[in-house]
């Protein structure tokens, strides 16, 4: 059986079950009420896309930098990386957002809540990214570094031509998973009053009292972002594939 057919069957079965569950629940749909507020949802979705994209790029950069810190020979640099990773991974994003916005950002004078929200999200995701990337770098055998040194590559060239191309293949699946999480975690930015997708859905719900009609589009909107990301990751994985 071809893969697309198997996927279609599973999706159809799932849709059938869900439809049956909704039908049994005796729920009265009111899509018209939600349709009135569609522009609110679209604006929220676009905000989520923009914030996610910016945080995604920033979190990869932060993750790589922090991973290099974790691997550093200098104790102090390693300590900075380790404290950052453990502190961020060990505390709720909610708290980080509140502290980031009300304490840190106002102390350094960043007033734009969108910028703060994006940075906090990137820093949050970057801590997970750091461990993923560090694991990928550590998985490259020491003999590869030896070979690179033997042919006279500098440490930076060794990273660029030997270590990173091999590590990319290893870290792609977990990085893609982390990026999917990042997109969904962006929903928490609503607590610092950023009108992103989830806040928009909450507002639509409070205007229309049509809970499912407000939140089902929310699920669809996030899937519209995360599914292409997963597909991209699988495609990249194929491109970088080689037998070790």
């Amino acid at each position: 059986m071809p893969r697309w057919l198997a996927h279609t069957i599973v999706i159809a079965a799932l849709a059938g079950l869900l439809a049956a569950a909704f039908a049994a629940g005796d729920y009265t749909w009111n899509w018209a009420g939600v349709w009135e507020y569609r522009s609110l949802l679209v604006r929220g979705w676009l905000t989520t896309v923009a914030i996610s994209l910016a945080a995604l790029v920033a979190s990869l950069a932060i993750g790589l930098a922090a991973a290099l810190c974790l691997e550093s020979r200098w104790r102090f640099v390693e300590a900075v990386g380790r404290v950052y990773v453990e502190l961020i991974r060990g505390t709720p994003l909610l708290v980080q957002l509140l502290i980031g916005f009300y304490v840190v950002a106002s102390a350094v004078g960043i007033g734009n809540r969108y910028v703060v929200g994006t940075l906090v999200l990137a820093a949050f995701s970057g801590a997970y990214m750091a461990e993923i990337i560090r694991g990928g770098l550590a998985a490259i055998p020491a003999t590869q570094r030896d070979s690179a040194r033997a042919i006279g590559l500098t440490p930076v060239q060794t990273l660029r031509f030997v270590i990173i191309p091999q590590a990319v293949r290893l870290v792609l699946p977990p990085v893609a998973g982390q990026l999917v999480s990042l997109i969904k975690d962006s929903s928490l930015l609503s607590v610092i009053a950023i009108s992103e997708f989830t806040l928009a859905a909450q507002e639509v719900n409070s205007f229309t009292y049509s809970t499912l009609e407000s939140y089902l589009p929310l699920a669809a909107g996030y899937l519209a972002l995360t599914l292409p990301l997963s597909a991209l990751s699988r495609w990249l994985e194929k491109r970088f594939r080689f037998e070790a």
């Binding site: 003999t143 690179a148 191309p165 293949r169 080689f242 037998e243």
Partner: peptide, 8 residues
Amino acid sequence: QAYNLFPH
């Protein structure tokens, strides 16, 4: 001895 080459 072994694993000289870059596998990628």
